[in-house]
Design a protein around this nucleic acid. Structure first.
Length: 281
DNA sequence: ATCCGGACCTGGTCGC
DNA sequence: TGCGACCAGGTCCGGA
């Protein structure tokens, strides 16, 4: 489900409940999600203190005061639930069925953190110190960091005949984008999603670079608003879904003033793409 | 090397 | 109300 902004929102929601806290109890309810969880997961986590919660791409990393870091990925349907009330008194969201609660952490301050993932495309793993973890080692630059530059994007696009949409979904090119924010960034940059990446001019790549940063930053801000309102800490889309300009808006008018186009949906390598055929070229 | 389609899962929605 | 078809925010893998 979650792309970079949703994962960042989950991280921010989780941080006050985890950072500095000892994990007092761990309940692992199945051996695997997409892959097997480490056999020593419960042993490593129980009694450990979380020092820092970080995010890399769509992964949340909890550094521990002992040994490895905990790695979480929410896949398509992963959610995190935070409960501070004792069991039994908590009136939880009925849309999150306890049926798919796979991992539960309790902290010394009494928070209970539950990973729920119906489709089980998510992942839980440990990253040993100094290890080049296979899920992390191939990742491209963090889009909101200084590592992500127009030049680097241009270099990744050079000579490539694949549609620009496919390359933006490739986590080796830039990390953290998914279907939604790729559609939204291409719309903002006025670039047609089927255009061969290698045939986009430098100025338009620079515009795309800016659009990627803008849309992610705005979505994170909106996620933060959701957090302050206690609307969502779980990985669901926050307020920003009301700001989508093309995603999911087939048949609606293009929001660009004066454009007059109609948002279209096509399918590219099995996934829906929404765009405006008039102002995206 | 690059590109694409299929695979992994469950649940929600829509049309009949 | 029931049932099948189709769709979904990710990403790894294998074959062309």
């Amino acid at each position: 489900m979650p792309e970079l902004p949703e994962v960042e929102t989950v991280r921010r929601g989780l941080a006050p409940h985890l950072e500095g806290q000892h994990i007092t109890r761990v309940d692992q309810r199945r051996p695997d999600l997409r892959w097997p969880m480490p056999t020593d997961l419960v042993q490593i986590l129980t009694g450990a203190r979380v020092t820092t919660l970080r995010r890399r791409s769509k992964y949340i990393l909890a550094d521990l005061d002992r040994g490895p870091s905990l790695l979480l990925h929410l896949g398509m349907s992963g959610r995190v639930r935070i409960e501070s009330e004792p069991l039994g008194q908590f009136h939880h969201d009925p849309s999150i069925l306890p049926r798919h609660d796979h991992l539960v952490l309790e902290t010394e301050s009494g928070s209970r953190i539950t990973l729920n993932d119906a489709r089980r495309f998510g992942a839980v793993d440990l990253v040993r110190e100094g290890e080049a973890h296979p899920l992390l080692s191939g990742l491209g630059p963090e889009p909101l960091s200084d590592d992500f530059t127009p030049g680097r994007l241009a270099a990744a696009f050079a000579g490539r005949r694949a549609p620009v949409k496919a390359l933006l979904l490739d986590q080796r090119v830039v990390a953290g984008l998914g279907n939604i924010y790729v559609c939204e960034a291409l719309f903002r940059a006025g670039i047609h999603p089927t255009r061969a990446a290698g045939r986009i001019g430098r100025d338009r790549i620079a515009a795309l670079h800016g659009a990627i940063r803008d849309v992610l930053a705005e979505a994170i801000t909106a996620g933060g608003s959701s957090l302050r309102d206690h609307r969502q800490t779980s990985g669901e889309l926050g307020y920003f879904q009301h700001s989508f300009r093309v995603y999911g808006r087939e048949g609606l008018p293009c929001p660009r003033p004066g454009c007059g186009g109609t948002v279209r949906r096509i399918v590219q390598s099995g996934r829906s793409t929404w765009y405006c055929p008039v102002c995206q070229r």
